[in-house]
Amino acid sequence: MTSTQIATALPRDRRVLGVQTWTVAAVALAALALAYFGFAVTSPYRLDIAMTFTMYSLLALGMYVPLFLGGNIDLAYNAYYAAGAYSVALVGARTHLPLLVAVPIGALIAAVLALVVGLATTHLSGFHLALATMLAGLAVYRWISSTGAEITGGADGIGGIPRLEVLGVEFDRELLVAVGFLAVWLVALCLSRFRRALPGLSVRLNRASPAAAEAAGVPTRSMKLMSLMSGAAIASLGGTFIALMNQFILADSFSHDIVFLILFLPMLGGIASPWGAVIGAALLVLLNEASSLLEGPGPLIFGGASLLILILLPGGLLGIAATTWSTWARRSRGSFDD
């Protein structure tokens, strides 16, 4: 079965200005990031915001892979986030290894956790899968914050993480933010290419119609596990960057609250493209900047908007953009005909 054949079985992608929506989004975001980063260099506060955006984007992009491409619910993302952050913290503060090795270690631990979760919940779907994976995330959080305190430092977390140094170059906060933006951009770009390549199409076909995927010879089971594992590995990078940036971590950052937030990001931006997740992350960060993170009405507005979008506009913001564009284009073409 070729990719063209599979692609015909799936809904068509929307286009703006005759090109794929994702291309427009990629260019626009790259421009925005550059403009924002131009200001960011001057203020430490803006650097923190930029890094929060990076973290949310990577988590949401990670979740995008199994959930929005493959339709596999996995709500243990706080655990993968923690895997990335704690790898950096433990390698940096407790060993003399070069800090860079913490990055693959974190991704590996996250992937193995996702594999275990995926294998333990093989026969579950829908609400039951949501419950089981959420409990797995809760159990990991419990271990981090209390039972495993001897290793993880419990609620106090771990401090004193040294700066990352590669080949004599010290990664200070500015450089980390730049690398973080680059990582988000690369991951989103790769995912949107992956989405339209043969393996990505197979994952999506499995979501649209599992029976058709089986019939087409897609190895559905291993494909599901692979998507869970790669999503977890991407999400772990979010934790890696945050730990490198702040040089300390607190157990409370890894509770299930973060799972809810990142679940909504792709919905807000639009689930038809990985760029939707990045746009959602940008919106969340801007909203947080407008009202302080957990005290103001920001999260309420954010959750309410996600709910409204789910009920009324399943395409998200990218979907609205594409629809508006095609309506406008059709109308203006019509006026030429008159």
Binding site: I73, G126, A130, P299, G303, L307, L310, I311, P314
Partner: peptide, 26 residues
């Protein structure tokens, strides 16, 4: 409204998760 448009259980799961979050923030 969601069940009228989607046959997909997945969308309902997401919407209810969003609802729970909204209730919490409210």
């Amino acid at each position: 409204p969601i069940a009228a448009r989607h046959r997909d259980e997945f969308v309902v799961v997401l919407a209810i998760a969003a609802l729970l979050f909204v209730l919490q923030q409210l």
